[in-house]
Protein backbone atom coordinates (compact mmCIF):
# COMPACT_ATOMS: atom_id res chain seq x y z
CA UNK A 1 0.00 0.00 0.00
CA UNK A 2 1.15 3.53 -0.61
CA UNK A 3 2.62 5.18 2.42
CA UNK A 4 0.90 8.36 3.49
CA UNK A 5 2.53 11.45 2.05
CA UNK A 6 5.11 13.31 4.09
CA UNK A 7 5.56 10.62 6.74
CA UNK A 8 8.94 10.67 8.36
CA UNK A 9 11.24 7.68 8.49
CA UNK A 10 12.85 6.54 11.71
CA UNK A 11 16.20 4.95 10.89
CA UNK A 12 18.87 3.28 13.00
CA UNK A 13 22.54 3.84 12.20
CA UNK A 14 23.77 0.34 11.52
CA UNK A 15 27.31 1.06 10.38
CA UNK A 16 29.69 3.99 10.20
CA UNK A 17 32.56 3.66 7.72
CA UNK A 18 35.34 6.14 6.95
CA UNK A 19 35.49 6.13 3.16
CA UNK A 20 38.11 8.92 2.91
CA UNK A 21 39.63 11.45 5.30
CA UNK A 22 36.73 13.56 6.67
CA UNK A 23 34.12 11.56 4.73
CA UNK A 24 32.00 9.14 6.66
CA UNK A 25 29.45 6.75 5.23
CA UNK A 26 26.38 5.91 7.28
CA UNK A 27 24.32 2.79 6.64
CA UNK A 28 20.77 3.32 7.86
CA UNK A 29 18.06 0.71 8.43
CA UNK A 30 14.44 1.06 9.47
CA UNK A 31 13.87 0.56 13.20
CA UNK A 32 10.69 -1.35 12.44
CA UNK A 33 9.76 -3.75 9.68
CA UNK A 34 11.84 -4.45 6.61
CA UNK A 35 12.56 -2.59 3.44
CA UNK A 36 12.64 1.11 2.63
CA UNK A 37 10.95 3.08 -0.13
CA UNK A 38 12.66 2.87 -3.52
CA UNK A 39 14.16 6.11 -4.75
CA UNK A 40 14.92 7.89 -8.00
CA UNK A 41 18.63 8.15 -8.91
CA UNK A 42 20.11 11.39 -7.57
CA UNK A 43 17.61 11.61 -4.69
CA UNK A 44 18.54 13.01 -1.30
CA UNK A 45 17.48 12.32 2.24
CA UNK A 46 16.73 15.16 4.63
CA UNK A 47 18.24 14.21 7.98
CA UNK A 48 17.51 15.90 11.30
CA UNK A 49 20.99 16.72 12.66
CA UNK A 50 20.43 18.15 16.12
CA UNK A 51 18.55 21.39 15.49
CA UNK A 52 19.36 21.46 11.78
CA UNK A 53 17.98 19.57 8.81
CA UNK A 54 20.56 18.70 6.16
CA UNK A 55 20.14 17.02 2.79
CA UNK A 56 22.45 14.16 1.79
CA UNK A 57 22.46 12.19 -1.46
CA UNK A 58 21.43 8.56 -1.23
CA UNK A 59 24.33 6.54 -2.59
CA UNK A 60 22.97 2.97 -2.41
CA UNK A 61 20.68 0.82 -4.51
CA UNK A 62 17.43 2.59 -5.50
CA UNK A 63 15.26 -0.48 -6.01
CA UNK A 64 13.45 -1.58 -2.85
CA UNK A 65 16.56 -1.06 -0.68
CA UNK A 66 16.95 -2.78 2.66
CA UNK A 67 19.17 0.07 3.87
CA UNK A 68 19.94 3.64 2.86
CA UNK A 69 23.50 4.92 2.56
CA UNK A 70 24.72 8.50 2.81
CA UNK A 71 28.26 9.87 2.75
CA UNK A 72 28.91 12.95 4.84
CA UNK A 73 31.84 15.33 4.51
CA UNK A 74 32.83 16.95 7.79
CA UNK A 75 32.69 20.70 7.20
CA UNK A 76 34.38 22.49 10.11
CA UNK A 77 33.26 25.82 8.61
CA UNK A 78 29.65 24.65 8.11
CA UNK A 79 26.66 25.25 10.34
CA UNK A 80 27.21 22.23 12.52
CA UNK A 81 25.08 19.58 10.82
CA UNK A 82 27.98 17.54 9.45
CA UNK A 83 29.98 17.84 12.68
CA UNK A 84 26.94 16.60 14.59
CA UNK A 85 26.58 13.61 12.27
CA UNK A 86 30.27 12.79 12.52
CA UNK A 87 29.79 12.26 16.25
CA UNK A 88 26.95 9.80 15.66
CA UNK A 89 27.74 6.13 16.40
CA UNK A 90 26.09 2.85 15.37
CA UNK A 91 22.81 2.31 17.18
CA UNK A 92 21.86 5.98 17.07
CA UNK A 93 18.31 6.73 15.85
CA UNK A 94 17.89 9.35 13.13
CA UNK A 95 14.69 11.03 11.97
CA UNK A 96 14.65 11.51 8.22
CA UNK A 97 12.22 12.63 5.56
CA UNK A 98 11.31 10.44 2.62
CA UNK A 99 13.70 10.50 -0.33
CA UNK A 100 13.31 13.59 -2.49
CA UNK A 101 14.14 13.70 -6.10
CA UNK A 102 15.53 16.82 -7.76
CA UNK A 103 18.46 15.56 -9.84
CA UNK A 104 17.14 12.62 -11.84
CA UNK A 105 18.63 11.26 -15.05
CA UNK A 106 16.59 12.21 -18.13
CA UNK A 107 15.06 9.02 -19.53
CA UNK A 108 15.31 10.10 -23.18
CA UNK A 109 19.04 11.01 -23.04
CA UNK A 110 21.27 9.09 -25.47
CA UNK A 111 24.27 9.49 -23.21
CA UNK A 112 24.79 10.84 -19.67
CA UNK A 113 27.90 12.90 -18.90
CA UNK A 114 28.44 13.18 -15.15
CA UNK A 115 30.85 15.83 -13.88
CA UNK A 116 31.73 15.81 -10.18
CA UNK A 117 34.18 17.34 -7.78
CA UNK A 118 34.99 16.12 -4.24
CA UNK A 119 31.95 15.08 -2.22
CA UNK A 120 29.81 16.01 -5.28
CA UNK A 121 30.28 12.44 -6.50
CA UNK A 122 27.62 11.18 -4.06
CA UNK A 123 24.45 11.69 -6.18
CA UNK A 124 26.17 9.97 -9.09
CA UNK A 125 26.62 6.70 -7.26
CA UNK A 126 22.89 6.05 -7.54
CA UNK A 127 22.89 7.37 -11.13
CA UNK A 128 25.56 4.81 -11.99
CA UNK A 129 23.74 1.94 -10.30
CA UNK A 130 20.55 2.71 -12.23
CA UNK A 131 22.50 3.20 -15.47
CA UNK A 132 23.93 -0.27 -15.12
CA UNK A 133 20.54 -1.81 -14.37
CA UNK A 134 18.82 -0.14 -17.33
CA UNK A 135 21.71 -0.22 -19.78
CA UNK A 136 22.14 3.57 -19.98
CA UNK A 137 25.38 4.95 -21.44
CA UNK A 138 27.33 7.02 -18.94
CA UNK A 139 30.73 8.63 -18.56
CA UNK A 140 32.15 10.33 -15.47
CA UNK A 141 34.72 13.07 -15.03
CA UNK A 142 35.68 13.24 -11.38
CA UNK A 143 37.97 15.94 -9.97
CA UNK A 144 39.90 14.97 -6.85
CA UNK A 145 42.62 17.07 -5.20
CA UNK A 146 46.18 16.05 -6.07
CA UNK A 147 47.46 13.38 -3.72
CA UNK A 148 44.11 12.87 -1.95
CA UNK A 149 42.45 9.42 -1.84
CA UNK A 150 39.43 9.00 -4.15
CA UNK A 151 36.21 8.58 -2.13
CA UNK A 152 34.24 5.45 -3.15
CA UNK A 153 36.94 4.60 -5.70
CA UNK A 154 36.40 0.85 -5.87
CA UNK A 155 32.64 1.23 -6.18
CA UNK A 156 32.99 3.87 -8.89
CA UNK A 157 35.41 1.76 -10.87
CA UNK A 158 33.12 -1.26 -10.63
CA UNK A 159 30.03 0.71 -11.67
CA UNK A 160 31.47 2.99 -14.38
CA UNK A 161 34.30 0.81 -15.73
CA UNK A 162 36.04 2.51 -18.67
CA UNK A 163 33.62 5.39 -18.40
CA UNK A 164 35.36 6.75 -15.28
CA UNK A 165 38.12 9.36 -15.45
CA UNK A 166 39.74 10.71 -12.31
CA UNK A 167 41.26 14.14 -12.83
CA UNK A 168 43.87 15.57 -10.47
CA UNK A 169 43.96 19.33 -10.09
CA UNK A 170 42.07 22.21 -11.60
CA UNK A 171 43.90 22.46 -14.94
CA UNK A 172 43.52 18.78 -15.77
CA UNK A 173 39.80 18.91 -14.98
CA UNK A 174 39.29 22.05 -17.03
CA UNK A 175 40.97 20.49 -20.06
CA UNK A 176 39.02 17.23 -19.69
CA UNK A 177 35.69 19.05 -19.39
CA UNK A 178 36.48 21.25 -22.36
CA UNK A 179 37.26 18.21 -24.48
CA UNK A 180 34.26 16.19 -23.27
CA UNK A 181 31.81 19.03 -23.83
CA UNK A 182 32.93 19.35 -27.45
CA UNK A 183 32.85 15.68 -28.37
CA UNK A 184 29.60 14.29 -26.94
CA UNK A 185 27.10 12.48 -29.12
CA UNK A 186 24.02 14.51 -29.95
CA UNK A 187 21.34 13.98 -27.29
CA UNK A 188 23.78 13.79 -24.36
CA UNK A 189 22.65 15.29 -21.05
CA UNK A 190 25.13 16.90 -18.68
CA UNK A 191 24.89 16.62 -14.89
CA UNK A 192 27.24 18.53 -12.59
CA UNK A 193 27.68 18.41 -8.84
CA UNK A 194 30.55 19.71 -6.75
CA UNK A 195 32.08 22.92 -5.42
CA UNK A 196 30.58 26.14 -6.83
CA UNK A 197 33.73 26.98 -8.79
CA UNK A 198 33.72 23.66 -10.63
CA UNK A 199 29.99 23.80 -11.36
CA UNK A 200 30.26 27.35 -12.68
CA UNK A 201 33.11 26.46 -15.03
CA UNK A 202 31.39 23.30 -16.27
CA UNK A 203 28.17 25.18 -17.03
CA UNK A 204 30.04 28.12 -18.61
CA UNK A 205 31.96 25.73 -20.86
CA UNK A 206 28.77 23.93 -21.83
CA UNK A 207 27.16 27.24 -22.72
CA UNK A 208 30.21 28.31 -24.74
CA UNK A 209 30.05 25.06 -26.69
CA UNK A 210 26.38 25.61 -27.50
CA UNK A 211 24.70 23.17 -25.09
CA UNK A 212 20.98 23.97 -24.75
CA UNK A 213 20.00 24.82 -21.19
CA UNK A 214 17.52 21.95 -20.91
CA UNK A 215 20.38 19.47 -21.43
CA UNK A 216 22.37 20.84 -18.45
CA UNK A 217 21.47 19.81 -14.91
CA UNK A 218 23.17 21.04 -11.76
CA UNK A 219 22.81 20.06 -8.12
CA UNK A 220 24.02 22.66 -5.66
CA UNK A 221 24.37 21.29 -2.20
CA UNK A 222 24.82 22.99 1.10
CA UNK A 223 22.63 23.40 4.14
CA UNK A 224 19.22 22.83 2.57
CA UNK A 225 16.81 23.87 5.27
CA UNK A 226 13.66 21.92 4.70
CA UNK A 227 11.52 23.85 7.17
CA UNK A 228 8.23 25.17 5.81
CA UNK A 229 8.95 28.81 6.52
CA UNK A 230 9.17 31.38 9.29
CA UNK A 231 6.61 31.25 12.12
CA UNK A 232 3.80 33.82 12.11
CA UNK A 233 0.56 34.59 13.93
CA UNK A 234 -3.03 34.35 12.79
CA UNK A 235 -5.43 36.78 14.51
CA UNK A 236 -9.13 35.87 14.53
CA UNK A 237 -10.61 39.32 14.18
CA UNK A 238 -14.06 38.61 15.64
CA UNK A 239 -12.89 36.89 18.79
CA UNK A 240 -9.51 38.58 19.11
CA UNK A 241 -7.90 35.18 19.45
CA UNK A 242 -4.29 34.60 18.31
CA UNK A 243 -3.10 31.30 16.82
CA UNK A 244 0.61 30.67 16.36
CA UNK A 245 1.72 28.98 13.13
CA UNK A 246 5.05 27.25 13.77
CA UNK A 247 7.79 27.00 11.15
CA UNK A 248 7.08 23.41 10.18
CA UNK A 249 3.27 23.35 10.02
CA UNK A 250 0.89 24.79 7.47
CA UNK A 251 -1.53 27.52 8.42
CA UNK A 252 -4.40 25.16 7.61
CA UNK A 253 -3.07 22.56 10.06
CA UNK A 254 -2.41 25.18 12.73
CA UNK A 255 -6.02 26.38 12.41
CA UNK A 256 -7.33 22.81 12.62
CA UNK A 257 -5.20 22.13 15.70
CA UNK A 258 -6.74 25.23 17.31
CA UNK A 259 -10.24 23.92 16.54
CA UNK A 260 -10.93 26.13 13.52
CA UNK A 261 -12.29 23.80 10.85
CA UNK A 262 -11.94 25.01 7.28
CA UNK A 263 -12.81 23.16 4.04
CA UNK A 264 -9.83 21.85 2.08
CA UNK A 265 -9.25 19.30 -0.63
CA UNK A 266 -5.86 18.95 -2.34
CA UNK A 267 -3.72 20.56 0.42
CA UNK A 268 -1.18 21.44 -2.25
CA UNK A 269 -2.33 24.85 -3.40
CA UNK A 270 -3.85 23.64 -6.63
CA UNK A 271 -7.59 23.07 -6.24
CA UNK A 272 -8.60 26.39 -4.69
CA UNK A 273 -11.02 24.81 -2.20
CA UNK A 274 -9.51 26.37 0.95
CA UNK A 275 -9.38 29.95 -0.35
CA UNK A 276 -9.67 32.34 2.59
CA UNK A 277 -10.03 36.11 2.96
CA UNK A 278 -7.27 37.66 5.03
CA UNK A 279 -5.40 40.89 5.67
CA UNK A 280 -1.66 41.18 6.24
CA UNK A 281 1.62 40.55 4.46
CA UNK A 282 0.84 37.33 2.59
CA UNK A 283 3.53 35.05 1.13
CA UNK A 284 1.68 33.28 -1.69
CA UNK A 285 2.78 29.76 -2.65
CA UNK A 286 -0.33 28.42 -4.41
CA UNK A 287 -0.94 27.78 -8.10
CA UNK A 288 -4.47 29.13 -8.10
CA UNK A 289 -4.55 32.90 -7.61
CA UNK A 290 -3.96 35.30 -10.49
CA UNK A 291 -1.16 37.88 -10.28
CA UNK A 292 -3.77 40.57 -9.59
CA UNK A 293 -5.31 38.54 -6.75
CA UNK A 294 -1.87 38.00 -5.27
CA UNK A 295 -1.00 41.64 -5.47
CA UNK A 296 -4.25 42.60 -3.75
CA UNK A 297 -3.03 40.77 -0.61
CA UNK A 298 -6.59 40.12 0.50
CA UNK A 299 -6.90 36.34 0.22
CA UNK A 300 -4.73 33.22 0.35
CA UNK A 301 -4.69 29.41 0.21
CA UNK A 302 -3.81 28.48 3.80
CA UNK A 303 -2.79 24.93 2.82
CA UNK A 304 0.51 26.20 1.38
CA UNK A 305 0.70 29.99 1.73
CA UNK A 306 2.03 31.83 4.77
CA UNK A 307 2.38 35.34 6.11
CA UNK A 308 4.83 37.65 7.78
CA UNK A 309 4.09 38.88 11.28
CA UNK A 310 0.35 38.96 12.01
CA UNK A 311 -2.33 37.85 9.56
CA UNK A 312 -5.86 38.96 10.34
CA UNK A 313 -8.90 36.79 9.51
CA UNK A 314 -12.55 37.78 9.64
CA UNK A 315 -13.45 34.84 11.87
Amino acid sequence: MSAPAGDDLVLRVEQVVDVAPSIREFVLRPTEGEGLPSHVPGSHLVVACGDRRNAYSLTGEGHAPEAYRISVLHRPDGQGGSAWLHRVRPGHILRCGRPRDAFAPVATARHHLLIAGGIGITPFLSHLRAARRWGRRVSVLYAVAAGAPVPHHAELAALAGDGLRILRGRAAMQAAMDHALQTQVLGTHLYVCGPDGLMDSALALAQAHGWPEERCHAERFGGVDAAEGAPFTVRLHRTGRDIAVAADVSMLDALAAAGVEWPAMCRRGVCGECRMDAAGTILHRDLVLSPAERAAQSCLMPCVSRAEGVLSLDL
Binding site: A3, A5, R98, R100, R268, L287, V288
Partner: peptide, 14 residues
Amino acid sequence: RAERFLMRLGAGQA
Protein backbone atom coordinates in the same frame (compact mmCIF):
# COMPACT_ATOMS: atom_id res chain seq x y z
CA ARG B 1 -2.54 24.12 -12.95
CA ALA B 2 -3.06 20.37 -12.80
CA GLU B 3 0.14 19.80 -14.78
CA ARG B 4 2.19 22.01 -12.46
CA PHE B 5 0.71 20.22 -9.48
CA LEU B 6 1.63 16.83 -10.92
CA MET B 7 5.17 17.94 -11.69
CA ARG B 8 5.62 18.82 -8.03
CA LEU B 9 4.26 15.56 -6.61
CA GLY B 10 6.74 13.95 -4.24
CA ALA B 11 7.96 10.36 -4.58
CA GLY B 12 5.30 7.81 -3.67
CA GLN B 13 2.52 10.36 -3.20
CA ALA B 14 -0.92 9.47 -4.55
